[in-house]
Design a protein around this nucleic acid. Structure first.
Length: 287
DNA sequence: AGCACA
């Protein structure tokens, strides 16, 4: 139990910073061919604009270009951001993964390395960002004057015939609520149809922590969590696949603070971006 | 997306 991967103090020690607990990793300036320098961004609200994505990334070191893609699957929107090196991409990912993108809805960015690099770099005349709209296929090329061909996303955005056909008439809502100042005033009109409470579950003094790397250790997480008031006990479970953790706190508020502070933080053991933290579905059993 | 312990 005493031996595991050594800690990297560069990442581990961040005693009093709340907004930027992690120093940026050292970006590389040149990559071996094949290195991924493109980020895949999900968790975006369906009314996100390409401009917002561009503003999110444009100041990051090494940024080259980005694109917003309407997958055509419901209202789902994803984005890709390309950097001049893998290191720069990782730095931007570590800074932005898990941050609240829309404080109104509490939606949180989820950023990971893309499966493949965007072929399209920023070219003169192509504009700073690109929009790809697969929401409905029109034979006229009226809306996408700047996308001649898209080769990104080996995901499953538009399979030839495999996917359920997108509804033809659900695109009209997108401009109606794109600039609404407030969604729904509390107590007027709507019943509580949505169980979503910001982070996805109802508050609990136990936290569920996922997106841990395969080499994450209990000690590593415990050292991090024990800096926070009310921390009680930590358990790690590696159900065959990736490990997940449960961290128990005395009070819900203390768990909430930790979740807000550590959401998206990168552990030194991680190979996959920051932690993903939610309230656990049930409180850890006292034992 | 992935939520155990009794």
């Amino acid at each position: 139990m005493a031996y595991h991967q050594p800690y990297d103090p560069y990442y581990v020690y961040h005693p009093h910073s709340h907004t930027h607990p992690l120093p940026p990793p050292l970006p590389q300036f040149s990559d071996e061919p094949g290195a991924i320098n493109t980020l895949f961004v999900s968790g975006l609200p369906d009314d996100v604009k390409a401009r917002e994505i561009h503003n999110l990334f444009r100041r990051r070191p090494g940024f080259e270009s980005c694109q917003l893609k309407y997958t055509g699957r419901g209202d789902q929107v994803v984005a890709f951001a390309t950097f001049s090196s893998h290191g720069f991409a990782m730095a931007a990912m570590n800074e932005l993964n898990g941050v609240k993108f829309d404080p109104q809805t509490g939606s949180t960015l989820h950023i990971e390395l893309a499966r493949s690099n965007s072929r399209r770099k920023e070219r003169p005349g192509s504009g700073p960002y690109v929009v790809i709209d697969n929401r409905n296929q029109k034979s006229s090329k009226s809306q996408d004057d700047q996308s001649d061909e898209e080769e990104i996303d080996p995901d499953e955005a538009q399979e030839p015939g495999n996917i359920d056909s997108p509804k033809e008439n659900d695109y009209a809502k997108s401009e109606a609520d794109s600039d609404a100042d407030s969604k729904a005033p509390p107590g007027s009109g709507h019943l509580e149809k949505v169980p979503e409470g910001g982070s996805g579950a109802r508050p609990c003094s136990t936290l569920f922590i996922a997106n841990l790397g395969p080499n994450c250790t209990e000690d590593e997480l415990k050292q991090l969590l024990s800096r926070y008031p009310g921390f009680n006990i930590l358990k790690i479970r590696a159900r065959g696949g990736m490990p997940v953790a449960f961290a128990d706190f005395e009070e819900i508020e203390q768990a909430t603070d930790v979740m807000n502070d550590l959401q998206g933080n990168l552990l030194s053991s991680s190979d996959r971006g920051g932690m993903h933290i939610e309230y656990a579905r049930s409180k850890m059993r006292k034992q």
